[in-house]
């Protein structure tokens, strides 16, 4: 069971109040991109054992989307942050490094 705090309305709830929205920080490739890029965007996903970044929606609450950083092994939620960003905030990354030294996730570390 994950306990998430919605950064939009500030409510802390358990995961059934939210809905998972898949991997975070995907780069979109559409018309004009190569087939490899499009395949990557459409199908290739991280499946880490450890630190993971996801999109979530506060579906039974304020209805807003946000990002969450969590650990797929320990189910610890490191933090949540706004949806309007292309990368995890620096303070959150530092916090994860303290707990999981040397973590990497796609281009982030």
């Amino acid at each position: 069971m994950l306990i998430l705090t919605c950064p939009c309305c500030g409510v802390t709830g358990e995961e059934t109040e939210f809905h998972a929205g898949g991997e975070a920080h995907l780069k979109r490739f559409g018309p004009g991109s190569s087939e490899d890029q499009f395949e990557e965007y459409l199908f290739m996903r991280e499946n880490p054992k450890g630190v993971h970044f996801e999109r979530w929606r506060h579906v039974n609450g304020c209805g807003k989307w946000f990002h969450a950083a969590r650990n797929t092994v320990t189910l610890e939620v490191y933090g949540t942050y706004a949806a309007q960003t292309h990368e995890p905030p620096a303070d959150l990354r530092d916090k994860i490094t303290e707990k999981v030294p040397g973590w990497t996730w796609r281009e982030f570390q």
């Binding site: 939009c8 309305c9 609450g61 304020c62 209805g63 807003k64």
Partner: peptide, 8 residues
Amino acid sequence: ICWMSPDE
């Protein structure tokens, strides 16, 4: 008045 979300 009930506060529903940051814009509602």
